[in-house]
Design a protein around this nucleic acid. Structure first.
Lengths: 109, 109
DNA sequence: ATGATTAATCGTAATATTGCAATATAAAGT
DNA sequence: ACTTTATATTGCAATATTACGATTAATCAT
């Protein structure tokens, strides 16, 4: 108990859940928006930009990285983060499928 | 501590996080897919379809309903669930914005 | 080497989530 | 009224998440 029964679901469902869970936090949404907006990757700027402590930001970045949504490159003293295209596209396609499936349907009830 | 600092983020960021958090579980993804696939709304069928206990399914449905993603109509003894178009479209647009913003960018690092 | 800067990790407290057995509620049929 | 059928609620145990202070690790400049 207290543990998601991943073995019951398809690989696709589990992957999508992992990716969405990574995004499903306002801080991580804000981080992704910053990363996308500032074409050039950021790092410690996020600590100033958002009002969260450095360890907290670092942890959120780690979760986004674990889900594969972003990648980090060491750039001297700092770390440069950016979107990881393959996983980002995987997410985009999964969501497209979701929305497309509903488009054709009428409301019931 | 242990509590998300919602006051730090925009209303949009918080709303998107709530919607995504509701979807970000394999069981709830499976439920949404079933609801979308079976144009006609389902309810207890989900208990048979997925391999989870009735209270567990009921709880997942409640979370989806709380986020506004689905709506339930009492139909005699059973309850008929279906997508709630306004919120569903809100989510679709938010996600579109996300993906569109990245489209234009090149990879850095 | 020393100090400054940047980011990750550890430890911990507060809270949230997941799943289910047991029970409660509510409508329909008999 | 009583039983059946369908769903919701309650209570609880196991685990996960969120946030941050304190510390560590790693790179750069002097």
């Amino acid at each position: 108990m207290g543990l998601t029964k991943t073995e019951i679901f398809t690989e696709e469902q589990n992957r999508l859940a992992v990716m969405l869970k990574a995004i499903a936090h306002p801080a991580r949404i804000a981080i992704l928006q910053e990363i996308i907006k500032s074409n050039t990757c950021i790092c410690g700027d996020l600590v100033d930009e958002l009002g969260l402590a450095q360890p907290t930001i670092s942890q959120h970045l780690k979760e986004l990285k674990n889900a594969g949504l972003i990648q980090g490159t060491i750039e001297g003293v700092s770390v440069c983060y950016c979107i990881n295209p393959p996983v980002w596209n995987e997410l985009r396609e999964q969501m497209s499928g979701f929305f497309a499936a509903y488009d054709l349907k009428a409301t019931c009830c």
